[in-house]
Amino acid sequence: MITDKRQKNKLASCHRRKLWQDKVIKRIFQGSAILAALMILFIYFFVISRGIQPFLPSYDGDQQNVLSFLTGNRWRPDMNPPIYGVGFIVINTILTSLGAAIISFPISVLTALYIAKVAPPKLRAVLTTIVELLAAIPSIVYGVYAAGTITGLVDDFAGLFGISTYGGNSALAVILLLAIMIFPTITSLAVVSIRAVDRNLELGSIALGASRMETNFKVVLTSAKSGIFAGLALGLGRAFGEATAVSMVAGNRMIGPTLNPFDITRTLTTTILTGMHETSPGLDYDMRFSVGIVLLLVILVTNLSIQYVKRKVGGITNE
């Protein structure tokens, strides 16, 4: 009887201790989540509070006009007064990133489908490793590759049409570079989401008389669309955000927008990066934060439009 009671007590204290441990661990997890969320808030707060300074009447220096900043088609910080127009840069950024996505998205999705559904297991493992390795290459390495090889190819290609380029530095070089850079991002997310498609859906489709390929395209891909579009959003995010590699081949044109693919271009990130180490605190420095706000907005709008497109792409939902 007594031993029974003791055992009960022991069990209860053990249980209490476990509950207490659970609580502590829960708090630790909560703390890290809050810290991560706060970091986003801090970054947004810092960039925005710094970036809106030049447009406020209290600015210590030349106050800038928001409208001419957002719609401007020239970026001439060397002029007096300096001209900061970001409108054409936004168009250039969207054009180069979309161009890269248009090239990369179909290739990525088909590669993912092949890896996940068609390839024999041995080849699948090899291909998965290759895609992961591509994702691990640092952007500066892609940059030297682009400056040394892609520009040469673009220059030769332009020569076929009798067009002379700035040594291959061009919007097309940026598009090709970004297409290569976002390929692994889109592919690896697409592979994961295609693998997650319910096997019964496929079996049902085949049982109803569809061929394997019909099933793959009409059932598997549409069911995996959520993950595939998440991959596209991440890929576009990388394309919008890539600065180092892009600045090596973009050419930083001061006027625009650039619609000729063989002409030099300028993106939001290269505008922030170029001359950062040589500039001194002042208007030129603060304007980089203003460009940062515009970049954040562009990425936000793009992600929202991808969500919209995703909903429009028909088929079975697997969310």
């Binding site: 002029m79 530095n169 050419g251 930083n252 044109r253 001061m254 006027i255």
Partner: peptide, 15 residues
Amino acid sequence: EQLTDNAILTESNGD
């Protein structure tokens, strides 16, 4: 302040 708008801008002396 009169540099042509068509100029290409490079990153550094080496670039």
